[in-house]
Design a binder for these strands. Structure first.
Lengths: 226, 226
DNA sequence: TGCGATTTGTCCGTATGTATT
DNA sequence: TAATACATACGGACAAATCGC
């Protein structure tokens, strides 16, 4: 009824694009929880747009892996299982190592400074005990290496992974609000990232991701259990 | 006029899906050449469908990286430049090494047999001098390791890359019909893939891809030049 | 600079197919 | 089996933006 609901008219670009942005934001923020249903016509009237652009936005979020629609029946927010999370973390390890390989000999002071800044922000966010902030800050820290590569395919691939990671952690957070990133977990990562031993970074990255995966799966089990 | 043009009505699934399949096939086969224009309304009448499903199919091919549409103006078949090709080959190297890592300790006789089969088929295809066959056979050979991983994210990622590779080679072929994959180029690849030295495979893969990239860029320059 | 033509983007009413109950 | 809800598809119309003249 309200017909409010985002879709800022003044910003540029097409409706389809803006709708996709709003939908993505609501899914990642947890406003639309995993498994919950998305009804085309409902959202269209809520957003004050026709079904056409809305359908196309939904299709796009399907390709991004945030929505799942079964033909002629329903579309729901994706609900990740243990297998999905394992795939995400293993793939992420490979991508991030590739990213570091690409920039290894091009790392400069700006890179080191940015890395430090984002690490400090992460520690701040963790201390604030606002888990959304902590998650966002962690992903922001890890994003730096991807941005630095200037490799479009890699960056897009990372965006897709990051979205699903964010969705997953948001869901975990809603299930039981505790457990952000660990305060000391990124010291070694940052240190290796600015160091001179690529092979060491490889090991640190691998261990870092395995720890992240372990945390994720623990929480997944707790959620299923209770 | 003709209103023929594919879109097999009897097969399952939605129009959007079938239209996307037909479009993809025509792009990858070279029937729609890189840079050529795609007009919504035209295709809709040709295919005998309305603009709705057609638009959605176009959107999907946009996400797959085969079409590029500029808002309110036009949509064209993507035309890859040197930078794109470099990104594809470097990313592909990283993905394929990751894939081998995943299956390294799980390689069995079935894998080795399949690899051999696909290699023989590739050699046959090269000898036939039908370049489309040779390209398809080469991609089929490389696909094996991805399929074996059973890693959905990785497989989807590879599908996207493979599509653009196929598009690129088809374009090169139309420009001057020569230069398929080299006959001896995959001996070492297959040998390393069934061997016991992962580090050697890494090197072979890297060199193999660099050679492929070099061939691709040479042809690109020739195309631009004459 | 402006103008018209072309094409994409969007809306709405309606009809049909499919899954679910 | 029938009814319902919803996704899918159609067609005609108009708005908005781009491009060529």
């Amino acid at each position: 009824m309200s017909r409010d609901s985002g879709i800022p008219k003044l910003s540029s670009a097409t409706y389809r694009e803006r709708i996709a942005d709003v939908l993505r934001e609501r899914i990642l923020s947890g406003a639309f929880r995993p498994g919950s249903r998305i009804v085309e016509a409902q959202l269209a009237t809520q957003f004050g747009v026709s079904r056409g652009p809305l359908r196309e936005a939904i299709r796009q979020l399907n390709d991004e892996g945030l929505l799942v629609t079964s033909d002629y029946s329903s579309t729901r927010v994706v609900s990740l299982d243990a297998r999905d999370v394992k795939e995400i973390y293993s793939f992420r390890t490979a991508l991030e190592y590739f990213a570091f390989q690409l920039i290894w000999d091009r790392r400069d002071d700006a890179f080191r400074r940015q890395l430090h800044n984002r690490h400090v922000k992460l520690l701040d966010a963790i201390e604030s005990c606002i888990e959304e902030r902590a998650i966002a800050a962690e992903l922001h820290l890890h994003s730096l290496v991807y941005e630095t590569t200037d490799h479009q395919i890699l960056i897009n691939s990372w965006k897709g992974l990051r979205g699903r990671l964010q969705l997953y952690w948001a869901a975990v957070h809603l299930a039981h609000n505790e457990h952000g990133p660990r305060p000391g977990a990124h010291e070694e990562y940052v240190d290796a990232a600015i160091g001179d031993d690529l092979e060491r970074l490889r090991r640190v990255l691998s261990e870092h991701m395995q720890q992240g995966l372990a945390d994720a799966l623990t929480l997944l089990c707790e959620r299923r259990g209770g």
